[in-house]
């Protein structure tokens, strides 16, 4: 019975519950760094956890948060980010962002970049981000 309930819970939790919306990336030259921003929406009642983002556009991709520490701006790597049920988290300039380190090519305004987002429950979700000036 418990096994059956577990299966039903997993089946009920599909990746459509997690959405990556309005993803965009800053322009930057090859070899430089950039950042990915988006809205992370969880429309299920269950929490989940984003623990990795990957892309072919950069040598290294990390989850980061910028914090204002007594007037000084500091970036800290975060290992994962929990999203509660029915919650939306904004990855926005000056806050949470996905850092793209050592770009493999120029990111010019209008380009589209593919990303994979790894969640503990929802699995891998693919999304494209557009390069825009900001």
């Amino acid at each position: 019975m418990i096994f059956l309930l577990s299966i039903l819970t997993i089946l009920n939790y599909n990746s459509n519950s997690i959405e990556i919306n309005n993803a965009w990336v800053r322009p930057a030259g090859k070899g430089m760094n950039s950042a990915l921003y988006f809205e992370l929406k969880n429309s299920s009642a269950n929490s989940d956890e984003l623990f990795k983002v990957s892309s072919n556009a950069a040598e290294l991709v990390q989850l980061h948060k910028t914090v204002n520490k007594n007037g000084l701006m500091e970036m800290k790597e975060i290992k994962s980010l929990k999203i509660n049920g029915n919650q939306t988290i904004k990855f926005a300039p000056g806050g949470y962002h996905v850092m793209l380190i050592k770009l493999k090519k120029d990111l010019k305004t209008g380009n589209k970049i593919g990303f994979k987002f790894y969640f503990k429950k929802a699995g891998i979700i693919k999304a494209d981000a557009v390069v825009k000036s900001y």
């Binding site: 760094n33 040598e59 290294l60 990390q62 204002n68 520490k69 007037g71 000084l72 701006m73 500091e74 970036m75 800290k76 790597e77 380190i101 050592k102």
Partner: peptide, 24 residues
């Protein structure tokens, strides 16, 4: 203006990357 080199990260190719904590 304060600009303090901070965390160092290494890429797969061995490049060392560092960032600054800085005045805005």
């Amino acid at each position: 203006i304060l600009a303090l080199p901070g965390d160092t990260t290494e890429t797969k190719s061995g490049s060392k990357i560092y960032f600054f904590t800085h005045t805005d």
